[in-house]
């Protein structure tokens, strides 16, 4: 198993009203290939900032960050930007699709940016939309799509360059319960294909699609728990039913 991301002493402070806010305060984290990891914690605990640091949307004030085999904290902004287009797929709460582009154009955009031919990019984008169940929406602009459809398109976009890891920031935060259920199922399928996933969420159901749960408080990881290896299935079922096994 190879390591996808390794962070050591990662730190990010913001200027606060009185004193600096320690959004991320000395985080050590290793994510192996094929792992699905959730990060939970109260709002303001630094979980989104940590995800942004891992995905290069923000730069750390201190610490080292290795993505694949590259120490990205030492790269120039331009080199890091090139690297992360190929290695990281991002999914946001607010989808962040380009309003003027159709669904399939949104999905193929990151592929075109790394130099994939138009034909190959379109083929790959269409395949992904098909796999995620929205290929019939390929020619629609985002404002014609439902929330669940928008997040499927955004997920296809995140996957188009076959990234080393997919980072998702509250991916169901803007969805109703049915669409949340559908996105849950898609993340579960993605996990089963061995896609490395890091999910930041306040929704326990989303978090429970992962095998590993990190809890954050005040900018630090305070707990790192395996979720697999729980009760034997028969015992679990009996407890759910409220009966003695």
């Amino acid at each position: 198993m190879s390591t996808v991301v390794r962070a050591e002493g990662l730190r990010r402070h913001f200027r606060g009203d009185a004193e600096p806010v320690r959004a991320v305060d000395g985080v050590d984290l290793v994510v192996e290939q094929g792992e699905a990891v959730s990060i939970m914690g109260p709002s303001g605990c630094g979980k989104s900032t940590l995800l942004h640091l891992l995905g290069g949307l923000e730069r750390p004030d201190a610490g080292t960050l290795i993505v694949g085999d590259q120490a990205v904290d030492r790269l120039s902004e331009a080199s890091w930007a090139r690297l992360r287009r190929r290695t990281i797929g991002f999914v946001f709460q607010a989808f962040h699709l380009v309003d003027q582009l159709t669904a399939v154009e949104n999905v193929e955009l990151p592929a075109l940016l790394v130099g994939t031919s138009r034909r190959a990019a379109r083929r790959r984008a269409t395949e992904l939309l098909d796999r995620l169940g929205v290929v019939d929406r390929a020619g629609h602009l985002p404002d014609r799509l439902s929330g669940g459809e928008l997040q499927r398109v955004a997920l296809a976009r995140a996957l188009v360059n076959e990234p080393l890891m997919v980072l998702a920031d509250e991916p169901t935060g803007n969805l109703d319960s049915q669409a949340t259920g559908e996105i849950l199922q898609l993340f579960a399928e993605l996990r089963d294909t061995g896609q490395t996933l890091v999910l930041v969420t306040h929704d326990a159901r989303v978090a429970a699609t992962a095998e590993r749960l990190l809890s954050m408080r005040d900018g630090a990881i305070v707990e790192d728990t395996r979720l697999d290896g729980g009760l034997p299935q028969q015992t679990l079922l009996a407890q759910l039913a409220g009966w003695e096994a």
Partner: peptide, 18 residues
């Protein structure tokens, strides 16, 4: 932790049913 593990197991079971 205990409830998260259960939730994970229940969802795995539901996924296999779906």
């Amino acid at each position: 932790r205990e409830l998260m593990r259960r939730l994970r197991d229940v969802q795995r079971l539901a996924e296999s049913q779906i």
